[in-house]
Each structure stands twice: as C-alpha cells, then as structure tokens.
Design a protein around this nucleic acid. Structure first.
Lengths: 257, 257
DNA sequence: TAGTGGTCTAGACCACCCG
DNA sequence: GGGTGGTCTAGACCACTAA
C-alpha cells in the first residue's frame, strides 16, 4: 500500500487548535489584550466549547494566556525570571531577600518535611516553628513559602515574644542568622496549589505550581527546611551560577491600551 | 435555615474526588498496582467520567498516578531525583555525565535561543550545530535535550566527519571540551512537550515537562545553549549546592506483584 | 444584571495494547 | 476482539466580576 504517509498521525483537534491560536497570539494580539469569549471562539472554530477549552488550558500552562473567571481571557506577558539560589546564599530573611514574612505558628510538619529535618533520629511528631512568607515581584505575588524551623535551631528565641504573627516570624528569621550556614540543597518539582497557597497566589486551588524545596544545613544537621510554591504560569526560576546575571532581554513588548 | 456553616464553600466534585482518591492511594494501594478502569471508578463514585478524569489528571500531574492508553491506570512510584547542576560543572559530554548523544544536525535555532547565543551582535539566522541527547535513569528516559553550539565555538571540527548522527554529536561535544568554561546560567520553567520530545520521553504530546535552559559561557560570550525537557510527572530536579548529596530516603516502598 | 470562565453530565467514537 | 485511556460533543448550571 503506497500510503503517502500523510494520514499517519490524525492530530487531535485541540492540538491543532492550540497551534493555530498560538500563531494568532504572536501575530494578531498584544500583551494584555482580551480574547473573544470561549463560546464565541468555539463557534468560530467550529468545535465544542470543551475542546476549545482544552486548547486554552495548554496555552495557559505554557504561560501564553491568563484566564480569570468573570473577566475573560487575556494575553499574558512574558514570564518573569525570579532568582532562586544566588540571592539566598545566606539564611532566609537575610538582607536583600525579596520575601516578606506574614505569619508564624507552631505545628507538626508534614511527614516528608519531618523526615528531612529529623535525619536519622526518631523525633518526628514534634512541633516546629512554621513561618509563612510570600514573595512579591512587580506588585504581583509569585510565591508562597512555608519555612520549617525546629526549636533547636533557634534556642535563644524569647518566649516572651508574641506567639504568632508577622512579628514572631521576623524574630525566628533573626535568630536563624546567628547560625553558621554550612550549605544548602535544593529541589524543584511540579505540583498543584493547595487551597491556602492558591489564596496567597491569587489562583484557583489546583493551579500548577513549581515547588522548590530547600534544606539549610548548619551544625552538622538540617537547621531548616523551606517549601516554596511558585506560580508556574507566570514564573521562570533562574539559578545564576555565573557572574553576570544581567540578561539583556530586548523582549518585544507591545502593550495593549 | 440554621445553616451550620457546612455548605459555605461548595468544593468542586473533582477536587473532593482527588482528595478521596489520594487518601485511598496512600492506604489501599501499592506502587505499580492497577486501579479500576475509569468507567467503573466513575460509576462507583457516582460522577460522570469526565469529572473522574479531571481528578485523575491532577493526581497524574502530582506524580501519584501513571496512565497509559490501552493498558490502564497504575500507582506511580515516588519521583526520581535527577541531578541538574553539580554533575555538569563541566561541559556537556564530560566524563561522568548521564546523557547519551543521539544525533547532530545543522539548523537555525529558535528565536529565543538565537537571542541568547547572539548576544548583541546581529548574526541571527545563522545555522548552528544542534546536538540531540537523551538522559536515561533506571532504564527510563527522563529528559530530552537540544544543545545548540555555534560553529564559532568548535572551530577545529573536521569537516570530513559524518554530517550527522551520533558520531558527529560526539565530535561536537569533544571539541567543546577544549574551551575554558567561564560559567553557567540556568533557568527552569513549566512547558508542554513538543511532538518530538514527547516521542523520546514516551509520553503524549502536550504532556507537562520541566524545561531547563542552560547557557554555557566561554571566551567572554555564550559558547552553547542547552534546552532540556524533563518529564514533570516522574522527575524531581535536584540542585546539590551542598557537599552531602546522599539523601537517605527511607521511602516506604510496598511493591505490587 | 449581564457576561465571563469553571464545573458537570451522558453520551459517542477513536487509538492503542494485549491476549 | 475486547478492554483501556484519549478525544469530542451539545447541552446545563454555577461562581464570580464589573457596570
């Protein structure tokens, strides 16, 4: 059968749609511009709304679109590069870091975190200081963090201080600086936003996020563990291992009204 | 009307389903075990199949499940940590790296890559050596890479050598080693697999991937750019900044037959 | 209140894998 | 050929936003 190898791959409709839309975004739309609504787009392309949505979801995942219930679908600006790593070759909360403390409570950490903190000893089930921080860039929240600090890492923390709140968060961070940092350890993976993180990030629960887990080492053990969730749609995590970090972007930015 | 504050947040069905399934996975299933098929699960929970699928998609995104057409849905093993960074504080292809060259062609790079390579000069549109490599861990493909190397970075590359193929890929990598590495620069973002990457990774096009872009600096400029796409469902990217990389996992691994 | 995206349904057919 | 997940449809209602 001399199949001329044309119909070998019946490309799904939503995939083709995504390609068409992507090209249209490049040529016909400016950043911030509002697209026609989903019902009209579906009709225009002759597909069911669910199919059209499948294509939009992909484009949103790739950071090309931004959708907001009750408002509409807009063309997203290029992802912002947020530095992860170099700026924090000190403790969290050191001078110059871009996080802002929100709250601090005492709680039993999740099992995975307890495992990293506990090491080989069997002291799981213990409560640790749990600092909540958020990171804001260009006025937009980009990440929410939970920082787990065992009481042993901040022995001089005055019991007099407020039992919770941003003030206590700052106290814990201040005490952390007294330790001699011995190293860090970082991991990045894909996750979906928990309800509380989603709220801080101004997204719906389940939104795709990049989870950055950092272990801080001091005094031969793990002094703290940070779990930071970054908005995957708007963020590009950068690890500046080299000296020059100035990236001359020259991104073509056509802005809508 | 004494609403006892129970219906304040009408949690979406798929979200609740996801939670229930997640707990069931923890308690009732072993890694590798096959779940009931989608039609039966949907019936069992009293929802439409599309709703059930929405929950499964989330769990797959989080690396809890693995779905394969024609086969079924299985419980995924914990994500594997793949090192990104330390092992490559040399050039790609240096002794001990875990990539295997597949092919090498000459092609005009995408605009974004050309911008990183070209710097301020206006020599875009030029063809560069494009090396294809894949990374395999535990017998499974975890990443596919395109490495862009301008001809200027490998001036002594013999024109006699084969014009493409794995042999030429190795030649380009070998020539790269001759340069003095001045630094690197790394970024991670979420993307969806292109058709060619999806094929190498044994996934469907559009599957979520973590895109790692690395710039290699030498002789005052960018000597090469690597764009590596990692399977987001199975990979956790690790950046070992500290000395000790041995993570004692102690993960509870109950294996199915 | 009107319009948007988000959720949900009950079907149908298709592509793929395996016995 | 029988069973699986993947795609697609044509509706419906809900939650949210903004005028």
């Amino acid at each position: 059968m001399g199949t001329t190898q044309l119909d070998t791959v019946p490309e799904p409709k939503y995939w083709h749609l995504k390609t068409v839309l992507s090209e249209a975004l490049d040529s016909d739309f400016a950043v911030g511009e509002i697209l026609p609504n989903e019902r009209e787009l579906a009709a225009r392309f002759g597909v069911a709304r669910a199919t059209l949505r499948q294509a939009l979801e992909q484009l949103e995942l790739e950071g090309r679109l931004q959708r907001r219930r009750g408002v509409g679908t807009t063309v997203a600006p290029p992802r912002v590069g947020v530095d992860v790593g170099t700026s924090q070759h000190g403790w969290p909360g050191a001078a110059g870091d871009t996080w802002q403390p929100v709250d601090c409570t005492s709680a039993v950490p999740p099992a995975a975190v307890a495992r990293m903190l506990g090491g080989d000893s069997g002291n799981s089930g213990d409560e640790v200081h749990t600092v909540r921080r958020i990171r804001v860039t260009h006025g937009q929240p980009v990440a929410a963090e939970l920082l787990y600090v065992p009481a042993a890492s901040v022995p001089d923390l005055a019991a007099i201080e407020s039992p919770s709140g941003a003030a206590r968060a700052r106290s814990v961070l201040r005490e952390l600086q007294r330790l001699a940092m011995e190293g860090q350890d970082r991991a990045v993976e894909l996750g979906s936003a928990r309800a509380d993180d989603a709220k801080e990030l101004d997204r719906l629960p389940g939104a795709p996020v990049l989870v950055v887990t950092t272990r801080y080492f001091a005094e031969g053990g793990t002094a703290a563990v940070s779990v930071a969730t970054y908005r995957a749609d708007t963020c590009r995590l950068t690890f500046g291992d080299s000296g020059d970090l100035e990236i001359s972007h020259h991104t073509q930015e056509r802005r809508a009204s």
